[in-house]
Deep mutational scan, measured.
Amino acid sequence: GTEIELESKNGQREHYTATSEDEARKIIEKAVRRGIKRIELRGASEQLIRDMQEIAKQIGLQYRTDGSL
Results as ranks from 00 to 15, higher is better:
residue 1 G to K: 13
residue 2 T to Q: 03
residue 2 T to L: 12
residue 4 I to C: 03
residue 4 I to Y: 01
residue 4 I to Q: 01
residue 5 E to L: 14
residue 6 L to K: 01
residue 8 S to P: 04
residue 9 K to L: 14
residue 11 G to Q: 02
residue 11 G to L: 02
residue 12 Q to T: 12
residue 12 Q to K: 11
residue 12 Q to D: 12
residue 13 R to Y: 09
residue 13 R to N: 04
residue 13 R to G: 02
residue 13 R to D: 01
residue 14 E to K: 07
residue 14 E to L: 11
residue 15 H to V: 13
residue 15 H to G: 03
residue 15 H to D: 01
residue 15 H to K: 12
residue 16 Y to N: 01
residue 17 T to S: 11
residue 17 T to F: 11
residue 17 T to M: 12
residue 17 T to L: 13
residue 18 A to V: 12
residue 20 S to L: 02
residue 21 E to A: 07
residue 21 E to Y: 14
residue 21 E to D: 14
residue 24 A to F: 06
residue 25 R to A: 03
residue 25 R to S: 02
residue 25 R to Q: 02
residue 26 K to P: 01
residue 26 K to R: 11
residue 28 I to H: 00
residue 28 I to D: 00
residue 30 K to R: 12
residue 31 A to R: 02
residue 31 A to D: 00
residue 32 V to S: 03
residue 32 V to R: 02
residue 32 V to M: 15
residue 33 R to Y: 10
residue 34 R to H: 10
residue 34 R to A: 13
residue 35 G to T: 02
residue 36 I to A: 07
residue 37 K to Y: 10
residue 37 K to F: 13
residue 38 R to A: 07
residue 39 I to D: 00
residue 39 I to P: 00
residue 39 I to M: 07
residue 39 I to T: 00
residue 40 E to V: 15
residue 40 E to I: 15
residue 40 E to Q: 14
residue 40 E to A: 14
residue 42 R to F: 10
residue 42 R to D: 02
residue 43 G to P: 08
residue 44 A to W: 03
residue 46 E to A: 13
residue 46 E to D: 09
residue 46 E to K: 09
residue 46 E to G: 05
residue 47 Q to H: 05
residue 47 Q to K: 09
residue 47 Q to E: 09
residue 47 Q to T: 09
residue 47 Q to R: 09
residue 48 L to W: 03
residue 48 L to D: 01
residue 48 L to G: 00
residue 49 I to F: 06
residue 51 D to Q: 09
residue 51 D to Y: 15
residue 51 D to S: 09
residue 52 M to K: 00
residue 52 M to G: 00
residue 53 Q to K: 11
residue 54 E to A: 11
residue 54 E to L: 09
residue 54 E to V: 09
residue 54 E to W: 10
residue 54 E to H: 05
residue 55 I to C: 12
residue 55 I to T: 03
residue 55 I to M: 10
residue 56 A to K: 02
residue 56 A to V: 07
residue 57 K to W: 10
residue 58 Q to G: 06
residue 60 G to L: 09
residue 60 G to W: 11
residue 61 L to I: 11
residue 62 Q to D: 15
residue 62 Q to V: 14
residue 63 Y to D: 10
residue 63 Y to F: 15
residue 64 R to S: 15
residue 65 T to F: 06
residue 66 D to Y: 03
residue 66 D to G: 05
residue 66 D to A: 04
residue 66 D to N: 05
residue 66 D to E: 07
residue 67 G to H: 06
residue 67 G to W: 02
residue 68 S to H: 07
residue 68 S to I: 11
residue 69 L to G: 06
